[in-house]
Write a protein that binds this DNA or RNA. Structure first.
Lengths: 116, 116
DNA sequence: TTCATATTCAACCAATTGGTTGATCTTTGC
DNA sequence: GCAAAGATCAACCAATTGGTTGAATATGAA
């Protein structure tokens, strides 16, 4: 029922899942390692990961007993193109992104610190 | 609790709301006119519009008894920048966008046709 | 074989979402 | 003043979401 954009935007509309994507930007990770920084059960993270997978934002590949998660950056393109139609955003401002990313990493990927 | 990105992405994760934004791309509209193409109560559209407003994606201004809705394209910039960090998207491909928009207009803004 | 590790499944729960209907409020036109 | 139009509010409902816990299912290591 829900189209691709529904799933991509819905997947992105959660702080935990965005933090996961940001972590995966650095490197591929196993499910347990993805879960480590969060104050939340492994099962919850597992659910988040399947939502991200269904949206096509990540891919999961099982090797042995470990399931590796890696970013699928292509999946965001359609959504990104959709959004760009609504403003004349200057072509990728990487500086702005780097600054934003730093903040996101502080706020999201270290829930212990933010929840005080 | 939910930060700005939460609200923007959550607002975009709904076909009806995306259709509304697409309609507003053409021109500012009154609430009743926004509601007209949808098979849904005015109250439902009113809720969608307040979600879009809370997310900062549109602004509503009351003139007389009519409330005008207009796009606030700036609000999407932060989200767009966030997304662009995950892929090396070629600088705005307007052709692709135009094609995509045509499809969105057919599928979303004319629910009668799509629901057959 | 046996034990531990990696991950998911299943059932449950509270909160949120997207919709409805009917009442309400404000503004306009006669 | 009064009725109609524009829009929201309030109460409700079913479905979904984001989390929990405990059991189940691999797989790897000893």
């Amino acid at each position: 029922m829900a189209d691709d954009l529904d799933q991509v935007f819905a997947a992105l509309a959660d702080r935990t899942r965005r933090a996961i994507l940001t972590m995966l930007l650095e490197d591929d990770m196993a499910v347990t390692d993805v879960a480590e920084p969060f104050e939340m059960s492994l099962a919850a993270i597992s659910k988040h990961l399947s939502i991200l997978t269904r949206a096509g934002l990540i891919a999961q590949e099982k090797r042995g007993r470990v399931k590796w998660c890696k970013l699928e950056p292509d999946a965001m393109r359609t959504a990104s193109v959709w959004m760009q139609g609504f403003g004349q955003f200057e072509p990728v401002n990487l500086d702005a992104f780097e600054r934003f990313l730093a903040v996101e990493l502080d706020n999201d990927a270290q829930p212990d610190a933010q929840d005080l």
